[in-house]
Write a protein that binds this DNA or RNA. Structure first.
Lengths: 210, 210
DNA sequence: AATTAAATTAAACAAGTGTTTAATTTAAAC
DNA sequence: GTTTAAATTAAACACTTGTTTAATTTAATT
């Protein structure tokens, strides 16, 4: 079976259940029987539609990341000053990932351990493309004399995404620490405080002269 | 069997092998037979010494994190200006984690999925203690008028650790992107460039006035 | 309506899982 | 040297794993 790029309703149903379970219990921690039971299908259907459990994961990654690239590229041509563009980029990132916590958690987890075998080429391309967009924005700011010039651009992304992920990976700890007792309070903290913190951090890094 | 806080040579041998394998293939991806084979012991020895696979992980976390607290606390009483203290704190963090990649990777991975059942109380205490130390350093800088006062201190740690982890979790991607073709080049990049980037970022965040 | 293809199923497969048992070897205590 | 405890072993246990098979049902095509 070749790697499919479009999926029918049944396949999407399986992908959605798999996303939830993989995110919750990890790839190895989730069995095909778990998925089948939750999706109310026969256990043979996963192999039938995707070939194997591994290929199911590959399909899932493709399914969820295919439209992220465009969103970033659209930002590039918008008529905003460099700082506003960076702020909006961060907003887009956080919001996109926060609304798709499942797949990004899986990527964060599994790509690190399964990378040798997985078909993550398209994912690599996505990242390089996003990096190029970020580079374009920062160069624009440097040309206008707003940003400093001795910035390691490839390390900006780790600071943006890393801060978010570290926060989210330790959800329970921070909910406890910051007294975010409901899911709403937690999400609100991400969208307001955490986003602001990251924007503030990157802004300071880009502008500050020692 | 009660939770043991000191380990004999054989137990340490098992813990070391488990650390490598858990870090490499994840907790669920590693079987007791894998560990037994690698450590050249009988498969029953893990249950004999630790009670279960789960308890082995708990023991491992305890074994590797028990001495981190002191290191941070010692920094507190050193006679350095606030910026230097923060820089050294970051250096300690990165170096400590970088030299113990295994266990921190495991923590990063497994605490997020296994948190309900795991005995990570001591780990929680460690984090809260470290946060207090950071708070003390920043307050000192604020009192001296060097740091700004509208800083979200609990979000500093996610930025420091998150940046590092995101970089390290995507090791292959960054080795490729930055042309770090050997293990030495990679480690050197962490100790020089990445550490500097994080120090620069936090410094800018703490000092910058908009 | 008959034929062909796709979808779905229960059952079986072989291999791997964590853990326990009971027997044996090694070491320690007396 | 004998007794007692600890360490180690191979084997078995019951159960779960991903995948495949062959039979059956459903849908589409002619």
């Amino acid at each position: 079976m070749a790697f499919k790029t479009d999926f029918n309703d049944k396949q999407i149903q399986i992908l959605q259940v798999a996303e939830i379970l993989f995110a919750e219990k990890g790839f190895d921690g989730t069995s095909i029987r778990n998925i089948a039971k939750e999706a109310k299908i026969n256990i043979a259907m996963v192999s039938y539609y995707f070939g194997s459990k591994e290929r199911l994961l590959e399909s899932l990654i493709f399914y969820r990341t295919k439209d992220l690239k465009i969103q970033i590229e659209n930002l590039l041509v918008e008529n905003l000053d460099p700082i506003a563009k960076i702020n909006k980029l961060i907003e887009i990132y956080i919001n996109k990932i926060n609304c798709n916590k499942g797949i990004f958690r899986i990527l964060h987890f599994e790509v690190a351990t399964k990378k040798k075998e997985l078909n993550i080429k398209s994912f690599y391309e996505l990242r390089k493309s996003n990096l190029k967009s970020l580079e374009a924005i920062i160069n624009e700011g440097q040309d206008k004399g707003v940003f400093r010039k001795d910035i390691s651009i490839p390390l900006i992304t780790p600071t943006i995404l890393g801060t978010f992920f570290h926060f989210h990976m330790n959800k329970e700890y921070f909910m406890n620490l910051l007294q975010l007792n409901t899911e709403d309070l937690y999400n609100n903290y991400i969208n307001v405080n955490l986003t602001k913190h990251i924007q503030q951090t990157i802004k300071a890094l880009l502008i500050y002269e020692s």
